[in-house]
Amino acid sequence: MNLLHSGLTYIDPRKLHSWAPDNTVQIIEIAACHSAHTSAAKTQGGHVYMWGQCRGQSVVLPHLTHFSCTDDVFACFATPAVSWRLLSVEPDDHLTVAESLKREFDNPNTADLKFLVDGKYIYAHKVLLKIRCEHFRSSLEDSEDDIVEMSEFSYPVYRAFLEYLYTDSINLPPEEAVGLLDLATFYRENRLKKLCQQTIKQGICEENAIALLSAAVKYDAQDLEEFCFRFCINHLTVVTQTSGFAEMDHDLLKNFISKASRVGAFKN
Results as ranks from 00 to 15, higher is better:
residue 89 V to G: 00
residue 115 F to H: 04
residue 76 C to A: 13
residue 69 C to N: 15
residue 78 A to W: 10
residue 48 V to H: 00
residue 104 E to V: 04
residue 54 C to L: 01
residue 90 E to V: 15
residue 74 F to C: 06
residue 64 L to Q: 11
residue 89 V to H: 14
residue 70 T to E: 13
residue 50 M to Q: 05
residue 51 W to A: 11
residue 107 N to S: 12
residue 115 F to G: 01
residue 99 E to S: 13
residue 84 W to H: 14
residue 45 G to E: 14
residue 114 K to F: 01
residue 114 K to D: 07
residue 73 V to N: 10
residue 89 V to C: 12
residue 99 E to V: 07
residue 57 Q to D: 07
residue 53 Q to C: 07
residue 98 A to V: 08
residue 107 N to M: 05
residue 105 F to I: 02
residue 107 N to W: 01
residue 80 P to W: 05
residue 87 L to W: 08
residue 70 T to D: 03
residue 46 G to D: 03
residue 87 L to N: 11
residue 96 T to W: 06
residue 50 M to L: 15
residue 73 V to P: 08
residue 106 D to N: 15
residue 108 P to T: 03
residue 75 A to W: 09
residue 53 Q to A: 03
residue 89 V to M: 09
residue 74 F to K: 04
residue 74 F to W: 10
residue 109 N to A: 13
residue 95 L to H: 12
residue 58 S to Q: 08
residue 48 V to Q: 04
residue 80 P to A: 04
residue 67 F to D: 06
residue 83 S to P: 01
residue 90 E to C: 07
residue 60 V to R: 06
residue 49 Y to V: 02
residue 71 D to C: 04
residue 86 L to Q: 12
residue 105 F to K: 02
residue 114 K to Y: 01
residue 79 T to Q: 12
residue 61 L to Y: 11
residue 88 S to N: 13
residue 88 S to K: 14
residue 108 P to C: 04
residue 106 D to S: 02
residue 104 E to L: 13
residue 108 P to H: 09
residue 50 M to E: 02
residue 59 V to P: 00
residue 58 S to T: 08
residue 82 V to F: 05
residue 56 G to C: 04
residue 91 P to Q: 08
residue 83 S to F: 11
residue 93 D to F: 14
residue 98 A to D: 12
residue 71 D to L: 14
residue 112 D to Y: 08
residue 59 V to E: 07
residue 57 Q to L: 06
residue 73 V to A: 13
residue 92 D to A: 15
residue 100 S to H: 07
residue 111 A to Y: 03
residue 56 G to R: 05
residue 54 C to H: 08
residue 80 P to S: 05
residue 89 V to L: 15
residue 98 A to M: 11
residue 92 D to W: 10
residue 62 P to I: 05
residue 58 S to N: 05
residue 111 A to F: 01
residue 73 V to K: 06
residue 101 L to C: 07
residue 84 W to G: 02
residue 65 T to A: 11
residue 84 W to L: 13
residue 64 L to M: 14
residue 90 E to L: 15
residue 50 M to D: 00
residue 107 N to G: 02
residue 60 V to P: 01
residue 90 E to N: 09
residue 51 W to K: 09
residue 60 V to I: 11
residue 54 C to K: 13
residue 80 P to E: 02
residue 96 T to P: 02
residue 113 L to P: 03
residue 102 K to E: 15
residue 71 D to R: 13
residue 55 R to V: 04
residue 106 D to P: 00
residue 50 M to S: 06
residue 72 D to K: 14
residue 94 H to E: 15
residue 53 Q to V: 05
residue 95 L to E: 09
residue 90 E to G: 03
residue 52 G to T: 03
residue 46 G to I: 00
residue 82 V to P: 03
